[in-house]
Write a protein that binds this DNA or RNA. Sequence first.
DNA 1: TATAGACCTTCCCATCATGGTAAGGTCAAG
DNA 2: CTTGACCTTACCATGATGGGAAGGTCTATA
Lengths: 144, 144
Amino acid sequence: MQIGDAADASGISAKMIRYYEEIGLIPSPKRRDSGYRVYESSDVHRLRFIQRARELGFPVERIRELLQLWNDRKRPSREVKRVALEHIANMEAQIRRMRDLVGTLRHFADACEGDSRPHCPILDELAGDGADVEARPQRRRLRH
Amino acid sequence: MQIGDAADASGISAKMIRYYEEIGLIPSPKRRDSGYRVYESSDVHRLRFIQRARELGFPVERIRELLQLWNDRKRPSREVKRVALEHIANMEAQIRRMRDLVGTLRHFADACEGDSRPHCPILDELAGDGADVEARPQRRRLRH
DNA sequence: TATAGACCTTCCCATCATGGTAAGGTCAAG
DNA sequence: CTTGACCTTACCATGATGGGAAGGTCTATA
């Protein structure tokens, strides 16, 4: 099996398979005399694991941990669950941040007529609308 | 006012101010004989606009549009609102994607005992759990 | 006036995961 | 033997940001 077959079978592009090899996420496969990489079905199995984890949004470094746990047949499931829960917490934090942004922005957008007149509270808000952006005294050197 | 003052006043690092100049988001300021950049309070005003837009998650290219609209005193507010609504829609799409991922992943995590035993449905799921990942016939050359 | 040191300049590199391209070698079917 | 699908490595780009090096400028103070 050469790299294109492994790519088709795993859903990971040949380009990314080489990259994962380069960063040590997957072992370097055997080579033919020509230099062509040769993959076994166990390699494809590993690649599919990686692909599913990527689909779930795990960053590559988390996947590195998951692969180690997967290879260790005696791992406590606690550790796997910890990795998963951390990832969930990260995503939820990001979701919260984005929801806040959406809420704020929608507030401004709601206040905007959206017609042909130029007045626009969105721009007013971004412009700071009278906040003190006046000339400040020249920077003063910090001690010495 | 030199770049460090503008950075302090706007909340944008000196590094990023130079970058925004390089990509044409802000005009090149005057220079002293020494080459030092000289900023006016109007420049700081513009930088604060940019900073607020970044805080709201607008990508730089959207901010470029917003700055143009801001400078055009006759723009219809419709156009500003369109940019804002597009950004909201993008963020909401991203939030939806992430919520789906969290839902799926939490489903797996809930099924995992998270104790000292090795059995773990999360890894089982990632591993494909009996999906057909068997050796496939060698790639066949496409016609010719 | 000389020095210290805070500040500025440009240039290059790294991030993260991915895609693109180019130049060149390999392989199998016709 | 030719064709062309496939492989190899090496480099560049993304978006927005930070880090650092090497070197020049400015000003307060000894």
